[in-house]
Amino acid sequence: MPRLSVWFVRASLIYLLLGFFIGALILAHKGIPYYAPIWNLFPLHMEFLLAGWLVQLAMGVAFWIIPRFSSGSPRGPVGLVWLSFALLNAGILITALQCWFPVSVLIGRTAEVVAGTLFVVGSWLRIKPHGVM
């Protein structure tokens, strides 16, 4: 597994734990109410599990698994995908501030869109038939 995939996948595992933890707090509150403001964490639960866990894991595994080039950099423009990793995680963390700074959703989501676009650009040419250089 390449180093960048290790970072993507380990970050996704951390978000899985955070998302599960928040989800457990909310579900427990549904059962035995103990602190109503816990619902303020609901957007974080969704953000961490959808973008942080599912999307990030898919990006990490895709970077590892999809076909490589036989000449030049085997996984294409790796720097671009590192930037995508950094922006995705910055976007998730900025979005997580929405309880306190509502404008952070717009900034965070924009970072996530740029991250996704960089990932697509960096991976596009690797989606190719077997035997193509």
């Binding site: 933890f21 579900l27 035995i32």
Partner: peptide
């Protein structure tokens, strides 16, 4: 209370499942 505590128990089980997986 019974269904309430079932939800609490369910929350703990699901979190521990995630923790063990990680």
């Amino acid at each position: 209370p019974f269904s309430g505590w079932m939800l609490v128990f369910s929350a703990i089980l699901q979190f521990v499942a995630g923790l063990l997986f990680v």
